[in-house]
Design a binder for these strands. Sequence first.
RNA 1: GUGAGUGUAGCUCAAUGGUCAGAGCGCCUGGCUGUGGCCCAGGAGGCUGUGGGUUCAAUUCCCAUCACUCACCCCA
Length: 415
Amino acid sequence: MSRIEAVRGTQDLLPEDTARWQEAERRIRDVLTRYGFGEIRTPVFEHAELFRRSLGLGSDVVAKEMYEFTDKGDRQLALRPEGTASVVRAFIEHSLPQKGGRHKLYYVCPVFRYDRPQKGRFREHHQVGVEVFGNPAPSQDVEVMDLGDAILGALGVSGFERRINSNGDPACRPAYEAALRAFVEGRKDRFCKDCAGYRLEHNVLRVLDCKVEACRAATADAPKLVDHLCDACRAHHETVLAHLRTLGLDVVPDPRLVRGLDYYTRTCFEYVPKDAGQQGTLLGGGRYDGLVELLGGPPTPGVGFGMGLERVLDAAPREPAAPSLAAFVLSTSVDAYPRAFRLAQALRRAGVACELGQEGKSLNSQLRASGSSGAGWAVFVAPGTGSVGLKNLATHVQEDVAEGEVAGRLAPAKP
RNA sequence: GUGAGUGUAGCUCAAUGGUCAGAGCGCCUGGCUGUGGCCCAGGAGGCUGUGGGUUCAAUUCCCAUCACUCACCCCA
């Protein structure tokens, strides 16, 4: 009988991990609140069609990475492979566009992709995402980028690079794609077979971020999208750069930066650690002015990003965990256990975090446990009634204290 | 989806084609004459990932499968 293990690419988080995750999430939510964002929660699964429509049939995510299934009612469903589509769906479904104004939403949730697992890549991972609807201004792009920066800062992550580019919009991108296609076609022999093949056919922009050395060399003098932007896109991009300077955010222009998803327009950005390998992208996002309309809503500008929590936590410094226990109650003999049990109950109800030596264990064993528990105090309980021994485990000083006074001595001061 | 490496006690790792597969750490019990972190002694715990094959004999050789790690692809 073989035992059942966690599904490939998924992982369990044990208490030593969840303590760190909880602290990180607390800080993240704190920053988001300060930036005026409200949380949205959407289902983990949706109609598969939602993702097909928003990401595009040609995307890798839709083509081969979705966890799709049919439910008992014959619905074609999929576990969400990313967060934006669901948020846009809910945004439209609840008639938020009709309410006008600006909507700033965030989410923290698991997402699923059928990928081959490796360092920094899982089949289930967690994203913090933000989406802002209703504001076409360049400053909105920058507020979102600054927010990403603030979150990473709150988690102690440093040493990353902010890369930025503009993907243009439906008015100017087609002309650029034609120019790039002509460029590649003119020297097919200098590109790898993927680039000269289906990328040239289906998604020329992808040729720009091919990792093959020959392709990188061959595209060195390729036409750049930033040089082909229409006036509106160029103005937008330049204002974004100006606002970034205003806020003191250094960025690295990256003409090769192309988002893999079809709905991005104009600004796109990625924050990557300077020393990491290929799987290091901490956060990626950009503007998607056409998406709401694509999914059946009124034309509505949007901008946001998705941040991979596993990767961010991997890049964040590990801080020593604060001890969570105040006291450890030990029974000096089996007869004393009921009394120790009752004292532990009283302490816990009085607000003292305490642990109790296991029933039946030797005093020596209980002491070892108290030592490694991190508790500041040990309480020795002997059979009978009256006082108990209260020992400060750091100073080794022990004194007799009436049982009823222990809680008072250990309870945190009430405000 | 492609390629490479790994899979032996809870953890980190040894070992050999052949009698009972080892160590350190951890864990349990005890001692240091009723109180922890040091030290000492003893103990529990492995069908050597799973399934086949070769062989008189396999943990060791071969195949498959699963998982993990790393890279490609793609992304967070």
